[in-house]
């Protein structure tokens, strides 16, 4: 009896989240998956006929008449992946030491800092990126300052370069890296560090053998949360990257909104998704702490 009731309770508790995920996550995902194998309609939309050239255009088996193989799509995807990886790396390098510093602050200042880190969420991303545009442009704040103190003779061309895109991405993603890292670092048991010193380990050995493995869950978590949206981000390259800074996210956006080729956009989305999934699975399984 009790067993049966437990099951009913479990079912009642699981139903809402299952329904929500089913309707708002699985259905759209399946729609995109199905669309990627349909024929593009002449004026947008789809025709319900199987069509594998969407993938042919990307991977090279296009017929060359209706659809043309363009290696540029894979190149753009590769660039997006490497930009995302650089973003993850830079966020990590910036946030890791700061997380340690913040975790040692007195309670009051810690709260202030955590509030500051989440402050950007209170304003629109577009507005903040345009602020960066004003800072980075040739007659912008940064160049004016550097020229003013005589560090450079001519304005730096940063805007509409890969540097600007990475800078913007890092800026957008820092809170997502910082919060999981901070949680891991703040949970780190200080007595473990003391035990390591006590047993004769130097500072470097302690970092490598105790601190790093103990905070690894935060590093992996932060990296995953930063990597996924970085690969598909199209707003940052749109505002700061200019015409040459096309990313995988921009490609998808163009296909759906400008070219109105939904099936091809869907195929690109599926490609990005599967590549991200493969990269993450490899990354997470490789980083499992090895036992010696």
């Amino acid at each position: 009896m009790a067993r049966r009731r437990d099951r009913l309770v479990l079912a009642a508790l699981l139903t809402p989240v299952t329904l929500f995920l089913g309707v708002f996550f699985l259905v759209p995902l399946l729609t995109i998956a199905v669309f990627s194998f349909l024929t593009p309609g002449l004026y947008g939309g789809v025709e319900w006929a199987f069509y594998h050239w969407n993938y042919g255009r990307i991977f090279g088996w296009a017929d060359g008449i209706m659809e043309v193989f363009e290696p540029v799509y894979l190149r753009i995807l590769g660039r997006s992946l490497s930009f995302a990886a650089v973003t993850v790396l830079l966020c990590l390098i910036l946030c890791y030491p700061v997380a340690f510093w913040v975790s040692r602050l007195p309670e009051r200042w810690r709260l202030v800092f955590l509030f500051l880190i989440t402050l950007p969420f209170f304003s629109s991303l577009i507005v903040r990126l345009y602020a960066w545009l004003l800072i980075l442009k040739p007659s912008g704040l940064l160049n004016e300052m550097l020229l003013g103190i005589g560090l450079i003779g001519a304005p730096l061309e940063i805007l509409y370069t890969p540097t600007a895109v990475v800078l913007g991405m890092v800026y957008v993603m820092i809170p997502f890296m910082f919060l999981p890292l901070f949680a891991a670092v703040d949970n780190l048991d200080r007595s473990l560090i003391e035990a390591s010193y006590d047993l004769g380990a130097t500072r470097f050995q302690t970092f490598r053998k105790v601190i790093l493995p103990q905070t690894l869950p935060g590093i992996v978590g932060g990296s995953v949360i930063v990597f996924i949206p970085s690969v598909g981000n199209f707003i940052v390259p749109d505002v700061l990257g200019g015409a040459k800074g096309l990313m995988a996210g921009n490609l998808v956006e163009q296909q759906f909104l400008s070219a109105r080729n939904w099936p091809f956009g869907a195929a690109l989305s599926m490609l990005i998704m599967s590549v991200v999934l493969i990269v993450l699975v490899t990354f997470v399984t490789r980083l499992r702490p090895k036992e010696g």
């Binding site: 007595s191 473990l192 003391e194 035990a195 105790v210 493995p213 103990q214």
Partner: peptide, 11 residues
């Protein structure tokens, strides 16, 4: 030292 919380390395 033997620590009060033992401070064993969980990983």
């Amino acid at each position: 030292t033997v620590f009060q919380s033992y401070a064993l390395f969980g990983h």
